[in-house]
Amino acid sequence: MALSPLRPTDDEARALAHELLRAARYASLATLTEAGHPMQSRIAFGLDGAGQPISLVSTLAAHTQALRTRPQISLLVGEPGDKGDPLTHPRLTLNGRGEILPNTGERHAEMAAHYLRSHPKAKLYIGFGDFHFLRFHITDGFLNGGFGKAFQMTQADLFQVE
């Protein structure tokens, strides 16, 4: 019987996952093309006022168009540091689905104000008609906290479930 590389998820792993989520300004987004092939894109990443992951995307982008027919997503957050082997730095994979939100109304205005605090350069295009917020509904994740520190993460581990 092979040994599992996964450690039991503990408060230290949860704290590291939360820190990676709070610190992330960019992520790698994987979607599925119409032909079923995985496609990755680098996107801006943030948390909304309730601490849930979001991005601001153009409906003209290939990844946004792919989400219209196949909403399954996978995100990777966590950047390598300036020193050392990039594979020893922590990173977090998130799995779930994406939801394109309307770009009008009070809810959009509140999200925009919150988002611009962490992504001020988005002010240049946040009002364009083809830009919408994308909400990520995360079901689970995988934390690689560095060499020998792998954890399966539940939705409850990653986000405060109310």
Rank of each mutant, 00 (worst) to 15 (best):
Pro102Cys: 00
Gly49Pro: 04
Arg25Phe: 00
Leu67Asp: 10
His108Leu: 01
Gly127Tyr: 01
Tyr115Glu: 03
Ser55Asn: 10
Arg97Asn: 07
Pro38Lys: 02
Gly148Glu: 06
Glu79Pro: 06
Gly46Glu: 08
Asn103Phe: 08
Thr31Gln: 05
His37Arg: 13
Glu106Thr: 13
Gln65Tyr: 04
Asn144His: 10
Met111Arg: 15
Gly146Lys: 02
Val77Tyr: 00
Ala24Pro: 03
His89Tyr: 08
Ser28Ile: 13
Arg22Trp: 03
Leu76Val: 12
His89Leu: 03
Ala23Cys: 06
Ile138Val: 15
Pro90Leu: 02
Leu56Pro: 11
Met39Glu: 14
Arg70Ala: 12
Leu116Gly: 07
Ala61Ser: 15
Arg135Glu: 05
Gly145Asp: 01
Lys149Pro: 07
Lys123Val: 14
Leu56Ser: 10
His114Glu: 10
Pro53Thr: 02
Ala35Asn: 08
His132Val: 05
Gly127Asp: 14
Arg68Met: 14
Glu99Leu: 14
His114Gly: 12
Thr93Arg: 15
Ala50Leu: 14
Pro90Val: 04
Ser74Arg: 07
Ala24Thr: 01
Pro90Gly: 07
Ala62Arg: 14
Pro102Asp: 07
Ala122Val: 03
Leu67Gln: 11
Arg22Asn: 11
His137Asn: 14
Ala27Asn: 10
Tyr26Cys: 13
Met39Trp: 11
Pro90Phe: 00
Leu67Trp: 00
Tyr115His: 06
Leu76Ala: 12
Gly49Ile: 03
Ser55Pro: 12
Ala112Lys: 15
Gln65His: 10
Lys123Met: 12
His119Phe: 06
Ile100Thr: 04
Gly146Leu: 11
Gly78Glu: 10
Gly129Trp: 03
Arg117Asp: 06
Gly98Tyr: 00
Gly78His: 06
Pro102His: 01
Arg135Phe: 02
Ser118Lys: 12
Ala35Asp: 15
Gly36Phe: 03
Asp82Phe: 11
Gly146Phe: 01
Ala30Cys: 15
Pro80Ser: 05
Thr139Phe: 00
His114Arg: 14
Leu116Lys: 11
Leu143Ala: 06
Met111Glu: 06
Thr93Ser: 15
Ala150Ser: 14
Met111Cys: 07
Gly36Trp: 02
Gly148Val: 11
Ile126Asn: 06
Gly146Thr: 09
Leu29Gln: 05
Pro80Lys: 05
His137Ile: 13
Asp48Phe: 12
Thr139Leu: 01
Ala113Asn: 12
Gly127Asn: 13
Gly51Asn: 09
Leu21Ile: 03
His119Lys: 01
